[in-house]
Computed example of a mutant assay.
Amino acid sequence: MKLSRRNWWFLAIVLAALILITLIAAPQNTNSNIGSTYNRSPSGYGAWYAFMEKQEIPIKRWQKPLDKLPGINNNQPTDTPATLLRVNSEITESWLNSGEQKWIEKGNSLVILGIKEPVTKANFTTKQESPFGKVEISTTRRKAINQKIQQRLGDRFGAIVWEEKIGKGKVIYATTSYLGANAYQDEPGNYKLLAELVSEDSKLIWVNEYIHGYKDRETIVAENNEGWVSYLAKTPLFAAFIQLIIILLILILANLRRFGQPIKLTTPSVNNSEAYIQALAGVLEKAETREFVLDTIGKEEQLQLQKALGLGQIPVAEETLVNAWVEQTGRTAIELEQVLQIQSKKRRLSEQELLNWLEKWQQIRHSIVNFRS
């Protein structure tokens, strides 16, 4: 097929426009892991979660959609008041859906850290007085005081933490998403204040991990059973597929004729895969690149184990994988955790250590086969 110079210019402009639109419309990184109890970085809440467990406060991770919360979709009264903690929500305080509103009215509590209130002239980092000692706050955002709210923490510039009554329950807001972050492990006032906010009127506390991308096995299985069209629409492949269709239509309209005479396909030459694998293994052995072998085989073994456990093909958190393996095989968690830790540390292994690591993966595979049989 031959195109005129004018048509080539037209095609180039269309392609450039499609690429630009894709880049602009591409989803941005929203730092969704900020506030996750699985996150060990300064912005995570892993240390605070461990603090709560050490205090024997009943706290659990919520890894399902919000509409699965007990009591959120019915009119039954709440027998056991609960609190749901949502960190880094990035919403305005006025937005609560009808399900959340009814759930709170029954006597439950919702704690939202990360409300976007106006910036004030306050210093970015301040030490606020509280019944639990000094609380370090790193934000200039404050909530203007009014009669509808009760201030729990604040200064002359406004409220930093406040609550609002809704029916028998309440919503507690904070202008910072880092109130109980790992960065404040040396600030006991921060951890104690957050512990009080989530537990003062509740016998059960949930931390919303679903908004950070963590899902339990039941949710993963349910979401992976969706149709292939709806799944494709959520991936970058959908945009690429649409672009390909548009390009083909442009080419057809530009020429209004067939793509040319059919070309006879040649028989592909036989590729000796075994010889190639052996040659590659020899090169890796001489170069002593065991880290590459550790990373490549480790990822594939982890994916195969995930499939065997019925968790689908989308990578899941290590804790989810370990829990599913223990539940299905009855073996101890430490056996799988040791193998995953060696892989995650990516340290330089000796040849014998690498062979021992491969043997442990083989034992894990056999445990699944024996359990299935």
Rank of each mutant, 00 (worst) to 15 (best):
A174V: 07
G167C: 04
N190K: 10
E164P: 08
K170L: 07
D155Q: 09
K168W: 07
L179K: 03
I160F: 15
G158W: 04
A183S: 13
N208P: 08
Y184D: 02
I205A: 03
Y184F: 15
S177T: 08
A159L: 02
S199N: 05
L193A: 03
A183C: 08
E196D: 05
I205Q: 07
G189W: 15
V198I: 15
E164V: 01
G180H: 01
A195V: 12
N208V: 13
V207R: 08
W162A: 00
E200L: 12
K170C: 00
L194E: 02
S177N: 04
L153G: 02
G169C: 04
I166S: 02
K203T: 13
K168N: 10
G169F: 12
L197W: 13
Q151P: 13
V171M: 05
V198P: 04
R156Y: 08
S202E: 06
L153Y: 11
V161L: 09
E200T: 11
W206P: 09
N190P: 10
F157L: 00
K168H: 13
G169E: 01
S199P: 06
E196G: 07
Y191E: 03
Q151I: 12
A195P: 14
I205V: 13
V171I: 09
K203H: 10
E187A: 11
E196I: 00
